[in-house]
Design a protein around this nucleic acid. Structure first.
Lengths: 147, 147
DNA sequence: TCTGATTAGTTTCAAGTGCAACTAATTAGA
DNA sequence: TCTAATTAGTTGCACTTGAAACTAATCAGA
């Protein structure tokens, strides 16, 4: 078997998590929560549903990540007044203090991954990956309409 | 934030795992072990170290996956006679009976991911992903020489 | 208006994963 | 040859994740 896209995306994902954990070892939240924090810091007021959709991750995982971020004092939840089913998410002061550090780290991750690649290679790859993701999501939707 | 390669590979990986789990729901081993079984079926006699390197996955995860596959009767271990540190892995009869099914499923996964893509797009993407993976591995090696 | 369906978020359970510390086997160097 | 270092594999721990069943709030249709 030669390399294929599935194996490579899996390997990249796993090993990038390791990179991220190393770079943010002293930051007192677990590896999965960095992404959530990052997105919230870019889109304050986002709901958990939107966060799940943005990251293409299950809502139960989002609920737990958010719970942890709140417990660590980095973000806070606020009930939407017009529809009390929604929780809107905002950075706390402590979250805001750590925000720049996270942004730098994420920028560094992008630089690491794109080393030795031209801008057009990167753009084309992003396009193809987006197509692949849509293919996979369509396949999963076919099987199960929910979640 | 626009989509980036890290987010896309993570999303593809997570959602492909869901696809695979759905397709192999009735197969009595967990999601992570399908990949291991597949590689072993293609390379009988492979060691756990080689398996870890092939999948770019940690050796402790490999040890547990192999343990489960053995417990379920799909594969067997055999000590290398020349160097007893190595365990060599082989399919059992039951493993061999299920092998074709797994191969078909993996082929189906490739077909799903590559829908709407030309052969050259796929090949170029694989090249880029390989470069990215090497970038990430090099970065991690810099931090930690072992594992 | 009221009842049933839908929706956002939570919780429990089972499973995969990495890290660190471990054992057993082998190799390298004094 | 013998001791220290290396190497393959294992185990315990912490953490992430998805599925399924749940609650609370809202919406849609009779």
């Amino acid at each position: 078997m030669a390399d294929n896209i599935n194996k490579l995306t899996a390997a990249i994902h796993r090993n990038l998590q390791i990179t991220l954990n190393n770079k943010l070892k002293d930051f007192s939240i677990g590896s999965g929560q960095h992404d959530f924090f990052y997105v919230i810091s870019l889109h304050e007021g986002i709901t958990q549903k939107e966060l799940s959709e943005w990251l293409y991750i299950g809502k139960s995982t989002t609920a737990k990540a958010v719970k942890n971020l709140v417990a660590h004092g980095y973000i806070r939840k606020e009930k939407d007044e017009r529809d009390k089913r929604y929780d809107r998410l905002y950075l706390t002061d402590e979250g805001r203090q750590n925000s720049a550090r996270i942004h730098e780290t994420f920028k560094g991750i992008v630089e690491i991954t794109t080393k030795h690649l031209s801008q057009s290679e990167i753009e084309q790859t992003i396009d193809v990956l987006r197509t692949i993701l849509n293919n996979v999501l369509a396949e999963n939707k076919e099987i199960n309409a929910d979640q």
